[in-house]
Design a protein around this nucleic acid. Structure first.
Length: 815
RNA sequence: GCUGAUGUGGCGGAACUGGCAGACGCACUGGACUCAAAAUCCAGCGGGAAACCAUGUGGGUUCGAGUCCCACCAUCAGCACCA
């Protein structure tokens, strides 16, 4: 029977009957936890992006299983979130209903893909048996001071009626709906990820992750080392602490700037300036963060009327407020050195503030302002003549004696805002009691169930607030009347620990058992999109470290190795999107060709890490390849009938050599997620086999042996198809349960190879030598070859370069 | 603007730590089979008559550069006054 989706079905049923994907936690084989980022069931179906992520990664898992690893390869669904809620608002279909339906469809499709998942190990984050433990983790973090509430300016999306994290604001617009983001103050829950800033940074060096992703995280954490300097007012009534990385420029300070939101502002502003300052602050609050930070925008500010004293030289400098200083970065105040900072320079020019140069280039007396590099100090009293580095050290030392300065480290990383004024998420398990204050819901009362009958149309209020049934409760401490927290958790919280739940997903006593999961976790190979480089991947790392410190885990990092698959673009080279009408649906292809042809094509046609524009013509090449294989198997089955054990000659040796070379190359390629070259190698072996069966005389044993190896090599890449060919060859059992072929070194021997001969680095000719000879003997063969002798005799040889067994280059004198 | 990635035939893409550029395919061309076509099989396939020239452009290092260094161009992605 020719390969088609019927064959897919046949083997899917057989696999199911025989439970071949059952994970055995007690296996003695070496464990390997390989995981793809779970999917969000927003659309109804798997799209091409899912396929490109999951199908090759599944081939990798199959390959590792055949190599003898005890592979743990689960799949689940990140099921809470905005799209389901937005869909519900639009259609009236409850998020739970649409999500359930989508999950069922996607699960079916993953099975149709031939995914080797053991569905006994799965999670769906919207199910109470999962979010119970998400809530439990929240309470543990709360009890240990890692979750706290604060009023903070947040990004507000008028259209979604919700708060967005900074990370979710894309280009000033809401990540999800695209409308303009504004600023608003709300009381919010945060996780104290900043406590882990340093470890999140240093931990990166031991991870087998793409360097570019590590850099994204380094920038996200944004460590900067500098100093804090305290500027006091003349009468000591207040002080302003600034953070600077350029304390060496301290003598050049001509004013100090405070963020408009700073609590200091009200205190220090003098009567005549009150009106102007008030006006400026209200103007600032109208702007959203993106507008405010735009480089395009002209810098603005206003004088407060206050002055402070520069601790290094006693100079009196004015205090301004300006929106280019942010309340939540550093200390919320900066010292301005217009001579040595672009921004300050621009600002000083605009408002006619003095500019005082204090750093110059080492070898020049002139200073072109602003001069922002390190150099030599002048105009700086006792520090004159010092280099920037020397002065930094000395100044911190001097200031620290009067408690007016110290070394300091700052991070760009902000605490993780986890409150969402949304319906479709895990309720934050907090109860507010008039007597007892804020109380975490005790473990025995978890989960705090998400009520079903709730009006969740957005109107600026948390939907749960509108359910009195949900809101009214009793205080777990005093038993008195109390109310619940109405906000739900950011879905990134749900996905920050899911990999820990998989191995122990049925546990109803705990989130996970430390001993159970430590046999499997951490994840050895994690595969997913680059777009999660900062958010998901940093949150999950934080969660692992926090849980470790609370004693629930004994490893530091969740994902040891990370691979990003590329993106498949539309045929027009643009990102696929419904609005552009350039989407490609895997379904039609599966229907028409069967899932293995589709899988093989997406693996062969693209570099896995790179992706590229979709090209459907490429599929035909795979159809042809499958047909060739089927013909090969038929022919072999014919030849098998007339067994012949022809003597082993060069032809057989060639075949065996290539077989082993193919095993070697494919093993390395699949290990490296280089599926396109692995398939290319398999094609070479297929070509060789076809060439061999055209021989007059063949050795059927060697042929059959090689064909069996060949099908085994194809098994992880084309799982259904390989089973079918395996059966056709008369083999019993599943090829999936076969051992991945091993290289037989002795069969690699023999044969010849070509050594390129260069003159002055340019290829002139090639010499055929015995492949197994020692490099010294190969050199002898090269030197006695007539072509080489001729070159050596007829030219003035300067040098001979011999890379043993690889290349021979003759450097001759040019005339 | 800054940071990062990418740039190789008509196309998708190969090329390990510097060592035969274009593996493996697609498309194309010629041939075989056929009354014919499709399918299949065989052969060819970067440019050039050749010397040679070719991995975005221009330099450099090296016996030798797609690979290393410098400058630039183009495309894509991320970040946004970070003190």
């Amino acid at each position: 029977m020719q390969y088609s989706k019927e064959i897919d079905k046949k083997w899917q049923e057989k696999w199911k009957e025989n439970d071949v994907y059952r994970y055995d936690p007690n296996s003695k084989n070496k464990k390997l936890y390989t995981l793809e980022m779970f999917s969000y069931p927003s659309g109804a179906k798997l799209h091409l992006g899912h396929w490109f992520n999951y199908a090759p990664a599944d081939s990798f898992a199959r390959f590792k299983k055949m190599q003898g690893y005890n592979v743990f390869h689960p799949m689940g669904f990140d099921a809470f979130g905005l799209p389901a809620e937005n869909y519900a608002i639009k259609t009236g279909i409850h998020p739970e209903e649409s999500t359930r339906k989508n999950i069922e469809t996607m699960k079916r499709q993953l099975q149709e893909m031939g995914g080797s998942y053991d569905w006994n190990y799965s999670v769906e984050t919207c199910m109470p048996d999962y979010y119970k433990w998400t809530q439990w983790i929240f309470t543990k973090l709360y009890e240990n001071g890692l979750a706290y509430k604060k009023e903070a300016p947040v990004n507000w999306c008028d259209s979604c009626k919700t708060v967005l994290a900074n990370e979710q604001v894309i280009g000033g617009k809401c990540e999800r709906c695209g409308s303009e983001v504004k600023r608003k103050k709300l009381s919010q829950w945060f996780f104290k990820i900043t406590d882990y800033a340093e470890e999140l940074l240093t931990g990166l060096k031991d991870l087998d992750w793409p360097e570019s992703t590590k850099k994204v995280q380094v920038n996200w954490i944004g460590k900067s080392e500098g100093s804090e300097v305290i500027f006091k007012s003349e009468d000591n009534s207040f002080e302003i602490t600034v953070f600077t990385t350029r304390i060496d420029t301290l003598n050049g300070v001509t004013y100090v700037v405070v963020a408009p939101e700073s609590k200091l502002v009200e205190k220090i502003t003098t009567e005549p300036n009150k009106e102007a300052v008030q006006k400026y602050i209200s103007e600032t609050l109208k702007l959203n963060e993106i507008e405010r930070l735009s480089t395009e925008k002209e810098k603005t500010g206003v004088f407060t009327g206050a002055y402070v004293i520069n601790p290094i030289n006693g100079e009196k400098v004015p205090v301004w407020i300006a929106d280019y200083v942010l309340e939540d970065y550093g200390t919320g105040a900066v010292m301005a050195v217009p001579a040595h900072d672009e921004r300050d320079y621009e600002f000083a020019k605009k408002y006619n503030l003095p500019i005082k140069a204090v750093i110059r280039k080492e070898d020049s007396q002139e200073v072109e302002l602003p001069f922002t590099e390190y150099g030599i100090l002048f105009n700086s009293g006792k520090y004159d003549g010092m280099t920037s580095k020397e002065a930094q050290k000395q100044m911190v030392e001097d200031l620290s004696k009067n408690n007016q300065g110290k070394k300091s480290v700052n991070y760009r990383l902000k605490d993780w805002l986890i409150s969402r004024q949304r319906y479709w998420g895990a309720p934050i398990p907090i109860i507010y009691c008039d007597k007892c204050g804020t109380v975490a819901v005790p473990e025995k009362d978890l989960p705090v169930l998400l009520p079903k009958n709730v009006e969740f149309k957005p109107d600026g209020e948390s939907p749960l607030k509108k359910s009195s049934e949900f809101m009214n409760c009793t205080c777990p401490k005093c038993g008195g009347k109390a109310t619940r927290e109405a906000d739900t958790l950011d879905t990134f919280v749900c996905s920050s620990w899911y990999e820990l739940r998989y191995p122990d997903c049925k546990n109803s006593e705990k989130a996970f058992d430390k001993d159970v999961i430590s046999k499997v976790a951490p994840v050895d190979v994690y595969v997913g999109g680059k777009e999660h480089a900062a958010m998901h991947l940093i949150y999950a790392r934080f969660m692992t470290k926090a849980l470790r410190d609370l004693g629930y885990l004994d490893f530091d990092e969740p994902f040891k190795k990370l691979i990003h698959q590329g993106m498949i673009l539309g045929p027009d080279g643009n990102k696929m999107s419904k609005s552009k009408g350039n989407t490609v649906s895997p379904e039609e292809y599966i229907e028409k060709y069967g899932s293995d042809i589709f899988r093989m094509y997406i693996m062969f046609g693209f570099d896995y890490r790179q992706g590229g524009p979709w090209d459907e013509k490429g599929i035909d090449s795979m159809v042809k390849y499958f047909t060739r294989i089927e013909r090969l198997i038929d022919t072999v089955n014919e030849l098998k009938k007339n067994e012949s054990s022809k003597n082993i000659t060069a032809k057989e040796k060639d075949l065996l050599r290539l077989k082993n070379q193919t095993i070697k190359a494919m093993t390395a390629d699949i290990d490296d997620f280089s599926f396109n070259t692995a398939i290319a190698r398999s094609m070479e072996l297929s070509n060789k086999l076809n060439e061999y069966i055209r021989e007059n005389e063949i050795n059927t044993k060697i042929l059959l042996d090689t064909v069996k190896t060949y099908i085994t090599l194809l098994a992880p890449l084309a799982p259904h198809f390989a089973e079918e060919q395996w059966e056709k060859l008369g083999e019993k059992g599943f090829v999936y349960n076969e051992q991945w072929p091993k290289v037989i070194e002795s069969e690699m021997n023999g044969g010849t190879k070509e050594i390129p001969i260069q003159v002055n680095g340019k290829l002139k000719t090639c010499i055929t030598v015995d492949a197994d000879e020692t490099p010294d003997n190969i050199l002898k063969q090269i030197k006695s070859a007539p072509q080489v002798v001729e070159i050596l005799e007829n030219s003035e040889v300067v040098k001979e370069i011999y890379v043993p067994g690889k290349i021979f280059n003759i450097v001759i004198k040019k005339d």
